[in-house]
Design a protein around this nucleic acid. Sequence first.
DNA 1: AAAACGTGGCC
DNA 2: TGGCCAAGTTT
Length: 347
Amino acid sequence: MPATAATRRRAQPEAPAPDGARDPEQLRALHAALEDWFGAEARDLPWREHDRTPWGVLVSEVMLQQTPVVRVLPVWREWMARWPRPADLAAEPAGEAVRAWGRLGYPRRALRLHAAATVIAAEHDGELPDTEEGLLALPGVGTYTAAAVAAFAFGRRATVVDTNIRRVHARLVGGEALPAPSLTAAELRRAAILLPADRERSVVWNAAVMELGALVCTARSPRCAECPVAGACAWRAAGEPPPTYTPRGQAWHGTDRQVRGAVMAVLRAAEQPVTRELLDREMVGSAGSEPSAPGSTHHFAEAGGPLRDAITRLHALGTGPDQLERALAGLLADGLAVEAEGHLRLP
DNA sequence: AAAACGTGGCC
DNA sequence: TGGCCAAGTTT
């Protein structure tokens, strides 16, 4: 049956299907455009250098979970210099990883990286697993990180889906301002459809889409004028409709999380274990008052700038006894702190 | 499966 | 100024 004008229109709709099923020609053009753009505009990040190691890629991916690149860079360099191989990290106490984590946030990531290094050293002869499945079994490695390391460290064809990629797909293909609040099965299917069949191209595509989301197709005020695929963007074609929901932020002030963070800052800064009694006496219910001067107790005798600052910050929270108790219990349960003989310290 | 989990910069 | 946001994982 000869194709009529009507059937041709149905076969080639103006807007791409939201599941990403564009025709092969469109897809190929998309792949080529982003490949070129990435080649010209990609940032020079150390974990993309030729001398990178799979371990370095894993460390970068974990550090980058919910943490901006600029903050990760110096810490990643420090880690690589100090612990160039998983076994190097595994040879040290977990607390060293937590301390070297600095202020990246979510310090249990440091704990899990140390645990992963221990597994790699003990069960994998010091080498990272080179499959998604093997990587996924490591502590702190979820679906995103497993796919990312498989692709970027081992050159595998993996469906990488992070927050940047989700946003780019939502706009470019889905015609929506933002992806759903949480990852859906439909998004995974769409990402799989969009992934180039060619292995090497798939690696570049993953990196390119992620980079586009980070540099151009940003959450707030996207730079569409600089976008290499703006002409193919379903969101623009639809007139850039606003988000259909408003993301709700995380509570912070007055939360246990805030107290945990302040306690961890003290433990990181402290050269010696900190007495539990000190936390209770100096930091509970004393908002508005002054913390004891460094040197007023033997615990503070050697309090330098960083420790003093951390203590001052915790003091300023005016944490109540119940909340301090809860926060400490949480830290101990998570293994981020250890209590022995009335003292608290990093593990 | 919703909720917990740090931190700092930006508009 | 305060809410939003950043290469998520775990329970």
